[in-house]
Design a protein around this nucleic acid. Structure first.
Length: 461
RNA sequence: GGCCGGAUGGCAGAGUGGUUAUGCAGAGGACUGCAAAUCCUCGUACGUCGGUUCAAUUCCGGCUCCGGCCUCCA
């Protein structure tokens, strides 16, 4: 089975055929660094990280670029409110971002360009657009001329008339056309700015992605990803900038967009204020459980974030890790491919992670039943490889069972072991009342016991 | 107003023109001192009204409801 992806450009699930099968290139819009990432920001990161992992398995070389937007009016506003320097804020926020995404087992991208380090490339790109008649300077601004591009609106499938009819913003007087968008804008002395042919100023939001993707991936590359809310205007404008500068048919060939993250049936966003930060969630749930929650719904669908969903993901991982713990001493073996195939097939079918997880459940059930060592070895290997593809099961089973990743309070491991020993003694003398009393105390502390052939194990529930 | 999505069993959530999703919860059983974990068995779901078809949850159309975009946003 070959990889298929839903392409927003064609609105259909298309077979994926990279420009260069020896080198797949993908660009995903990264964060604007002015605040903690919320769980909605994490969804595209986890989704495209999973795609990245799949691509790396299917192709010899993958270059994944994800930008950091460190020049933006929201950052400027944050700096003014707090009295801190812009640099301070962007550095701190970028570091938080890296920590939080790493906790979700998201691999770092191969390239992570920062907007402020690519101003020269943006200025050069803007100059080309002016030269080719797709942009014009006016009152210190440079604007992209939407009317200069015949098929502007192709990605979001809206006509220029529709956009104008729906526009709720006041049209700046220097715009020739209400749909024209800013490539460069003037900065006052107190705002960050760079010298340019159009005076001291700063770039518009869209130009950085065109400039940086072109620099690191080439003027044509395979996949461009991001959240659905970026389709218009951000991605539409990226297409306009890049194809007008470099020629029709250039730029990204497959556009992939993840659905929104909802809370209580409403879109979660910073502007609505109904968001959970990844950082806060990590204090009460392991990163893998958060990641699995995000992968439990197909990436194209909206995902309603609930505590119950998170708890279920944790429970699922408990089951997976318990299976791995049972075969801890079995070295992963060969012949895993047939067992892994359904997982791979699900992922290759437009990244169908819920189906892939179902296939992992099937592997786990068969692993739990397997008695022959070679069968256990093959299934264990298949499960671990599925974990690598989905970015799950990266912990040691014992660490997971003992509560790895979540700050714990209460009983220490030594205290727990002591009580288990006391309970074992009580059971040996058939004093079950005492044994049950001890088990009850542990249960109240969140420690669940499991009596097995080889003794009593425990886990944090 | 314009343009998009979605509606699946108690819950979450895939998928399919006629055959089991999967998980959780629930019921029964095996195992256990009792539990837990594990394994086995079970409920026979696809918003509504029409149409196409031998056959539709699955294709087409109307309707209802929900959500989103059109402005910064992952």
């Amino acid at each position: 089975m070959a990889l298929c992806v839903y392409n927003t450009l064609t609105r259909s699930k298309d077979p994926f055929a990279p420009l260069d099968p020896g080198h797949v290139r993908m660009y995903v819009c990264g964060p604007t660094v002015y605040d903690r990432a919320h769980i909605g920001n994490a969804r595209p990161v986890v989704v495209f990280d999973t795609l990245y992992r799949l691509l790396k398995r299917l192709y010899p070389r993958v270059t994944y670029a994800r930008n950091i937007t460190d020049v933006d009016d929201k950052i400027n506003a944050r700096a003014q409110e707090s009295g801190r320097s812009i640099r301070d804020i962007t550095e701190e926020t970028a570091a938080w971002y890296h920590d939080d995404m790493a906790a979700l087992n998201a691999l770092p991208p191969d390239v992570e360009p920062r907007a402020t380090e690519h101003i020269a490339e943006m200025i050069a790109l803007i100059a080309v657009l002016i030269e080719k008649g797709h942009a014009y300077a006016a009152e210190g601004h440079v604007l992209f001329s939407v009317s200069s591009m015949a098929d502007y609106g192709a990605l979001s499938r809206r006509s220029r008339d529709e956009m104008i009819a729906g526009a709720r913003v006041e049209v700046a007087p220097y715009k020739k056309d209400p749909g024209d968008f800013v490539l460069w804008k003037p900065s006052t002395p107190d705002l960050p700015g760079w010298d340019s042919p159009w005076g001291r100023g700063r770039p518009g939001w869209h130009i950085e992605c065109s400039a940086m993707s072109g620099k690191y991936l080439g003027i044509s590359f395979d996949i461009h990803g991001g959240g659905q809310d970026l389709v218009f205007p951000h991605h539409e404008n990226e297409i306009a900038q890049s194809t007008c500068a470099h020629g029709a048919g250039t730029f990204a060939r497959y556009w992939m967009h993840n659905g929104y993250l909802m809370v209580d049936g409403e879109k979660m966003s910073k502007s609505l204020g109904n968001f959970f930060t990844v950082h806060d969630l990590l204090a009460k749930a392991p990163g893998e459980a958060i990641r699995l929650t995000l992968l439990s719904t197909h990436y194209h669908q909206p995902l309603n974030w609930t505590d119950d969903g998170l708890a279920q993901a944790k429970q699922t991982l408990d089951r997976f890790y318990a299976a791995l713990a049972r075969v801890e001493d079995v070295p992963p073996g060969a012949a895993a491919e047939p067992h892994l195939a359904p997982v791979l097939a699900a992922l290759e079918d437009d990244l169908n992670t819920p189906a892939a997880i179902a296939a992992m459940h099937d592997i786990v059930t068969r692993l739990n039943k397997a008695e022959a060592a070679d069968e256990q070895a093959a299934l264990k290997s298949a499960l671990l490889q599925a974990g690598e593809l989905t970015g799950l099961l990266a912990s040691a089973p014992e660490d997971w069972r003992r509560g790895a990743g979540v700050p714990t309070s209460g009983l220490s491991d030594a205290e727990i072991d002591g009580m288990i020993a006391a309970r074992a003694a009580a059971r040996a003398s058939r004093n079950f009342a005492e044994a049950d009393r001890l088990r009850r105390i542990l249960a109240d502390a969140g420690i669940l016991l499991e009596d097995g052939a080889g003794g009593t194990g425990w886990r944090r529930g």
